[in-house]
Amino acid sequence: MLLTVDRINKSYSSFPNPPVQVLHDVSFSLAPGQALGLVGESGSGKSTIAKCLMALAAPESGSILYDGMDVSKARGAELLRFRREVQMVFQDPYGSLNPRMSVEELIGEGLLVHKLEPTAARRRERVAEIMRTVGLNPDDMVRFPRSFSGGQRQRIAIARALVIGPRILVCDEPVAALDVSVQAQVINLLRDMQRKLGLAIVFIAHDLAVVRHLCDSIVVLHKGRVVEAGPRADIFERPREAYTQALLAAVPVPDPEIGRARRERRHVLT
């Protein structure tokens, strides 16, 4: 396994309220090249998991092992290697890019920080190359984030994460803030990248339909606990837990026949 999350617990305290436990013994693992979906409603703890996965927060107990290293204890050179190999795309395409840096600086920052390309000219070439890969025009690298639409910003964020060649990409609700027609572009891009680069993806989302489309295996979270986990077909076609079933039943389907029928059935039941 590339990444193993083993029984992590985490609580937040906000004085004067008593501490609230947001994660209870959460475990799952990720194989190389696998696309794993973490789904849950608000309060399920999925964003906290993302923070712990990215070593931005440490669990109180349990461990997160990446390629043999304990993520929450990594320091110095070891942490830097982790940062290079595990990258992240955030939800908000408007807040996740430093507004005062040009696209070239933004995408090239990882190359600079990890000293992957010593010269500015080589860095620029690599930036242009990755921009083409994610469907951006390299001529736009002199521009600043404010002149891009939400979907384009998400492409910049993906390019910024991928340019240093990570093995895992953690995506925290990367399409939730995008319009439907643009959302599909970004989903397709992530899928292409995953296949082309053999990338492992942890895809955190509340939208089960998006997760079904993108992920091979799924972890369902509810109030900080893993409710059910398994391959895509099991979760979507044969959910075992009542919570998963209820969640799936509530997702609207863009087909009036099915939507109506489901609603009518429910009315008969109640």
């Binding site: 319009d179 439907v180 027609s181 599909a184 079904r212 489309h213 863009p254 087909d255």
Partner: peptide, 24 residues
């Protein structure tokens, strides 16, 4: 037509989503 085809479905596996190019 593009909008309907661009929505991922909870009830079926789609090989590729249709993506309308560009942005509104």
């Amino acid at each position: 037509r593009g909008l309907i085809r661009a929505v991922p479905r909870i009830d079926q596996d789609l090989e590729e989503l249709y993506a309308i190019p560009g942005a509104p």
